[in-house]
Nucleic acid binder design. Structure first.
Lengths: 396, 396
DNA sequence: CGGCCTTCCGTCGAGTGTCAACGAAAGTAG
DNA sequence: CTACTTTCGTTGACACTCGACGGAAGGCCG
């Protein structure tokens, strides 16, 4: 059966595999009950998956008076995902296992404005020593996830008219990788990637989830019904240029006035502080001041939280999320930003929508993007189609 | 094979059927190519579906030099869907065929505040003569769709704390029908239903769609990636209580101030006009005045459009829709309302998001809810699971 | 108008995948 | 150590799917 063809039984082994993707061990009887197929059939399909190397036996289950059932589970280290988080001034590269744990990661300065080839080459140059450290090679990579700081046409993996990334417009990122790694490449914008990363570390209660990145810009990623919502042009969640009430007369780099980003982003808060004679230029400076207990910085951050809360109150009415995570550099200002957000949200939004709503700072911190890039890659590679493609590749 | 069991071959006939749901005729070869299974197998499955009565032969295709291929298609009148649109003061009942055409419909005054039993009984009492008019009976009904003017827990079909519907809270609507019609019952809130109805009459370009109802209240239905987005508590799209800039000091019935609904709803515009000494009480009065060319009414409607546009500009940034339809009674004021909306939207929203965005009045008018209720019912009944359930029911 | 060609339909045997049953295996309890 | 319980791997029966084949239905041409 494995002679040049497929090892997967009825091609339904990939469906069975979906149950094991969470990494938890299961007995054959569990799987038979969950899928409705006979135990003997489950056994056959597990053999196929085992021969692919994706699953393996783990310690047997507890005996209930007879022979203890054997248990199988995903082998998390069977393959790796390569996660690449491209920022404006840095690139972060990591390797994750199949459940999304970041095994190794490394950051390096790199200007996205240098164009695709230098940045992606650097990312690969970082990845190789990481692979070596784990004793693996590029063949161990089952998929690549890439986050870029601008709008991306997800289906093709090409950036679409990114404002901050000269030379990247319509560049075929998956095509570039094709010469270097024989694995599928998924590309999405950095906020979506971070949303996926943070979402993956929350429980199932976060089925309707909003991730907000507050840094140099402000953006959001929407996960609804377990799916990332990208919108018609892939720019859903672009909340940085929604007008807020405090914004009359405040000009934004987008050419409009009163945008959220012009009031609540890191540079905007820093500019506010400079007007008070405080030396601050970036989000990082603001966070340092807040950490140091500077009252004026705290007040400014809280006001930024209120501005953000105004927009989030509207988004809560639209989307009715159950969890909102706030990440990005400014999230390091922690509770002060959130206090402002909550103040306005609980005043403005409808009680039913806020009753079970959690608003919190992102748990994943600066690893959100990397984790998300890994999750995006893994999600694709371990999908039924991905498993079948892998099967055809292995038994070619 | 049909002796007490299932007529559907490998239970995959229901998958094949999905291709035929659009009502277009297809040849066996078409279907074989589309599904990847052998022509002979397709033939067998079509036999099973034919014996269910859902599909049938239509005029053969054009010969390409040999025997012309036979073609099969959905029989749209094989079954009916019962559509019920419950409004605050009226109930509208209709019968649709399997592609969602409304065959007959009737409206009757009915106060939703009378409670579930009187309203639903009335709906059935209207439905029976309609059925008779078509020469059918209740057994012809394959599913029931119900729209209610308040939040609904979709999975269970129970209203959840509706403000305007005393006696309906947590009422088991599908359970009520169980004694009267042996068909699945789907319940959703009226705005979602209208969104489904309007969406079904737009082309595939409306994959990311926003429907806005402007009447006594203001609400929205979101369809993203082809799926209706209901949010964590099923109250997504509740945009009536988002604050707008013109709202300082304007009290809303929700207890807050500055809500969109307090400025741009039918009653709110009517109240504005009364301040100018014009006799107007409801949305209907406002629309009449606009139709009559009353300049003050036109100006008020346009201003309401601007207020709405402010909220929609934000929603465009969040969701990045490709089409926005505006329905509800106030939509009858047509271009004047839209002019205000467009004025603000094109000023505020980002160019990329508005570049390919269509903003229009709902094509389906006051039939939106009815069509949507029918589509909801049909969508469920003709899904793979629905077809299998039907099969088991017929060949029990 | 009849013969020939093209294309499609229905049937039938071969092959494959799935299932329930059965005996062997691997534990626990006394 | 024996009896009992539970699970595992195998195996033959059965159902489903596929490709092939002969017949059927229509167009084309002499």
């Amino acid at each position: 059966m494995t002679d040049g063809g497929s090892a997967l039984g009825g091609a339904d082994a990939s469906e069975l595999f979906q149950l094991l993707r969470d990494g938890l061990p299961r007995t054959v009887a569990d799987l038979a009950a969950a899928t409705g197929v006979a135990r003997s059939t489950v056994s056959l399909r597990l053999d196929a998956l085992t021969s692919l190397g994706l699953i393996g036996p783990v310690d047997p289950g507890l005996s209930t008076g007879g022979r203890p059932p054997r248990r199988v589970a995903l082998l998390p280290e069977a393959r790796l995902a390569l996660a690449i988080d491209v920022g404006a001034s840095h690139v972060q590269v990591g390797l994750t296992n199949l459940v999304g744990d970041v095994l190794l990661r490394r950051r390096a300065p790199s200007s996205v404005a240098d164009g695709p080839d230098p940045v992606l080459s650097l990312a690969l140059a970082i990845a190789d020593p990481l692979l070596e450290e784990l004793g693996r090679d590029r063949d161990a990579i089952i998929a690549v996830g890439v986050g870029l700081p601008g709008p991306v046409h997800f289906e093709t993996g090409r950036p679409s008219k990114p404002p901050l990334m000269p030379g990247w417009d319509a560049f075929d990122v998956p095509g570039w990788f094709r010469d270097h790694i024989a694995a599928p490449v998924l590309v999405d914008n950095d906020v979506n990637i971070m949303a996926l990363g943070e979402h993956s570390r929350l429980g199932a209660e976060a089925g309707h989830f909003l991730f907000v990145k507050v840094a140099t810009g402000i953006g959001a990623g929407i996960i609804s019904g377990g799916l990332l919502q990208r919108g018609a042009q892939g720019i859903a969640g672009d909340i940085g240029h929604v007008r807020v009430s405090r914004g009359a007369g405040v000009l934004c780099r987008c050419g409009n006035e009163g945008c959220l980003e012009a009031l609540a982003s890191g540079p905007a808060v820093a500019a506010d502080l400079r007007e008070d004679g405080i030396d601050a230029a970036t989000a990082r400076d603001v966070v340092s001041l807040v950490s140091a207990g500077d009252l004026r910085a705290i007040r400014a951050v809280r006001q930024a939280g209120r501005d953000l809360g105004e927009v989030l109150a509207a988004s809560i009415s639209f989307l009715n999320p159950s969890v909102i995570s706030i990440g990005g550099q400014m999230a390091a200002a922690g509770e002060h930003l959130l206090a402002g957000v909550r103040e306005v949200v609980y005043q403005r939004a409808m009680p039913l929508a806020t009753r079970n709503l959690q608003i919190m700072t992102a748990r994943t911190g600066d690893r959100a993007g990397l984790i998300g890039a890994g999750m995006l890659a893994i999600h694709h590679a371990l999908s039924p189609q991905g498993i079948q493609a892998l099967d055809e590749k292995v038994f070619s």
